[in-house]
């Protein structure tokens, strides 16, 4: 089965539709599927619901899809540092469902693992618990959260072989594996497609079974907060 596609446009062909639910990997601007986001901007798909921890910044990452008003609703844990996101939300143009970060990650993982709901103590006694079933286990309250089953996932890895076996690099792994798992179709972009057999099977982070379409390309990999320390002078 051929998984490698020539471009984001080709890899997204036939899977996009208005009103769909997309799960996206990345944390801040780290490990985000830059090429596929650009591909969705170009495709013009509308009324998207996007599950992603953040929404990029104003001119990069998912911020581009906010600028074009292609996103109707976000499922996110953090929107600080994104002025347009906050403006659209406070003015009512954008729906936002706050999800605690760990709950969002687990909702994706659960969806990918065929689990429609799970109980967690995260958010008990807060607005997050409103409207959700509360169940007591061993004297402690937990709330019911739902697994996410996305129409597609868009994720970014460092390297993958032709079968989609993928390796991530450092903290760019973040939400990418759980996001990949929860999509009915997962489209992955990588910095390098390597020959099948060249990755040590013991070091695969995400098995290729979760990856349906694969592209390779150049990544900008923008840094959001460049922080450095001074070198000690000799």
């Amino acid at each position: 089965m051929k998984k490698i596609y020539g471009s984001a446009k080709e890899a997204l062909d036939g899977v996009l539709f208005d009103g769909m639910l997309i799960a996206a990997g990345g944390f801040g601007l780290c490990g985000i599927p830059e090429l596929l986001i650009d591909g969705i901007v170009a495709a013009g798909t509308k009324d998207l619901t996007v599950a992603s921890n953040n929404a990029g910044v104003d001119d990069f990452g998912l911020g581009k899809l906010l600028a074009t008003r292609q996103i109707k609703k976000m499922l996110s844990s953090y929107v600080g540092e994104n002025a347009e996101f906050m403006r659209q939300y406070l003015s009512g143009e954008l729906e936002l469902e706050f999800n605690p970060q760990g709950t969002l990650a687990e909702r994706m993982r659960a969806g990918g693992a065929g689990i429609p709901g799970f109980y967690t103590k995260t958010g008990v006694g807060t607005v997050i618990a409103e409207g959700k079933e509360v169940k007591t286990f061993d004297g402690q309250d937990y709330i019911l959260e739902r697994g996410i089953f996305a129409d597609i996932s868009i994720v970014k890895a460092w390297k993958a072989d032709a079968t989609g076996n993928a390796v991530f690099r450092k903290t760019a792994r973040n939400f990418n594996p759980p996001a990949a798992m929860c999509g009915r179709i997962c489209i992955m972009e990588v910095e390098e497609i390597v020959p099948t057999g060249s990755l040590d099977p013991d070091t695969i982070h995400l098995p290729g079974i979760y990856v349906h379409r694969l592209i390779q390309g150049q990544h900008e990999k923008r840094i959001e907060q460049r922080t450095v320390r001074q070198r000690e002078t000799a």
């Binding site: 844990s77 970060q101 709950t103």
Partner: peptide, 10 residues
């Protein structure tokens, strides 16, 4: 001010 809880609730 809308920032979000990030991982704080967890």
């Amino acid at each position: 001010l809308v920032k979000g809880m990030g991982g704080a609730m967890d």
